[in-house]
Design a protein around this nucleic acid. Structure first.
Lengths: 236, 236
DNA sequence: TTGACAAGTGGACAACGGTCCGCTTATAAT
DNA sequence: ATTATAAGCGGACCGTTGTCCACTTGTCAA
């Protein structure tokens, strides 16, 4: 109820000009959390460290920890953030130096680089994926406020990148028309951290073999030209 | 300690001729468990039902439940078993009626049928996959004694089937040489229940679109011939 | 400086998955 | 029928994830 007697400012600035910035002590805690988590993860492995442990080691309550990070996955995402940014920049840079190449070549470059990146970050990425699917997170484009703004979900970005390159390749007549969004998703499925790890540890494939396989099927399956003189060796 | 006075049978039958058969009451419990689980799953969804609940509803202790099923995944596997057998037989039957077709056509048939099967069994299959990867089950060929003997892990079977068909296609000169084991794994990755569901619910792809996409990439990527006029009908 | 209030905090609590272990009982050999 | 024994049983118990809520404290505005 609005009380007319009170001197409510006319156009009261409901706009909430900018979100009250993070309290200083909170920021300090945040730092400590990341630090401690990084340390514990390094020492025992991501999977073996519980949120409770992290809270204790950081000498804060669980509630505090969960306030900042809804789950271990979120924490890992924050830890990864830096790497991701670097990766994204590198990729972006490479793309811009390679504009003169064929879209297919660019696509290949993106795939290979992404695979390497995922392969290097398996530990953290796996935790992310894991918690996401524990929560039935099958509604991928989730907002997730706790994430630094502007940092969209990473996989989404890669997806769009792949899709874009596929479209470009089609537009340039490098390949026949195809279902770009779904094809991008297929590629993404093959680069899923958990799957990657499974194939490496249980099947014993190494990264190069996987890259070769993906190349063989995709770059051929997409390409119109039957000959494969330019394709990398199947080498197995 | 062996007491020499006792008439221990000379070559005592250490062989344990056949495992003492399941006690009758235990068998009854098993039935009840399956029944109750099926019911609860149907009512609330697989994910929403806890082992504790199942035990309670079946009026047995948790220990009893866990004795038979190491986890929810195992229970679901048992529930699925029947369907799986039927599916396997159907597939086998179809394969034997289609021996005169090209290996590639057979491969296509297997892929399509498997996709449909997975799609129909998502609920249960998902629980299986989920628990398997919760346990870091990245060592797939796990023995898992609690499974009906002779019933190997299902995915393994499909994998071998796919691999075999790929090899056959290569041997017959239908396609260029490739890395059959890994290619089979790629296909399997795309048929993963969790991934399937994700793509359907989050991305909104329907099964036909996915089949079309996989066909486009794989049957083209593998095939030597650029045209695709010979590709089999969708037959559903 | 003061006070209001949202942001921040901590720890109790609950649900779930899963293990353990001591007791009971069906079964098979005697 | 008796008995040894392994199969079966139940529920207390543990660790983990995640929620809740009463309390404290930094911050901003007056």
């Amino acid at each position: 109820m609005i009380d007319a007697d009170h001197p409510t400012v006319v156009g009261e600035p409901e706009i909430a000009p900018q979100r009250r910035r993070e309290r200083r002590d909170a920021a300090a805690h945040r730092q400590r959390i990341l630090e401690v988590a990084r340390h514990l993860f390094g020492q025992f492995g991501v999977a073996a460290v519980s949120m409770h442990q992290i809270a204790q080691a950081a000498e804060i309550g669980q509630g505090t920890l969960y306030r900042r990070y809804a789950n271990k996955g979120a924490l890992c995402r924050d830890l990864m953030h830096e790497h991701q940014v670097v990766f994204a920049q590198d990729l972006q840079a490479w793309l811009s130096t390679s504009v003169r190449m064929s879209a297919l070549t660019q696509l290949d470059g993106v795939i290979v680089r992404t695979l390497h990146f995922v392969d290097e970050s398996t530990a953290l990425l796996e935790a992310v994926v894991r918690t996401e699917l524990r929560h039935d997170r099958c509604d991928l484009p989730h907002p997730d406020d706790r994430m630094p703004p502007g940092q969209e979900h990473w996989f989404l970005w890669i997806h769009d990148l792949l899709e874009g390159l596929l479209r470009k390749a089609v537009a340039r007549g490098e390949i026949a028309a195809l279902d770009a969004p779904y094809t991008a998703d297929m590629l993404l499925a093959l680069m899923n951290p958990m799957y990657l790890r499974f194939q490496q540890s249980a099947r014993g494939y190494d990264l190069d073999r996987m890259i070769a396989g993906i190349r063989h099927v995709f770059l051929r399956g997409i390409h119109d030209v039957p000959g494969d003189a330019t394709l990398p060796e199947t080498d197995r």
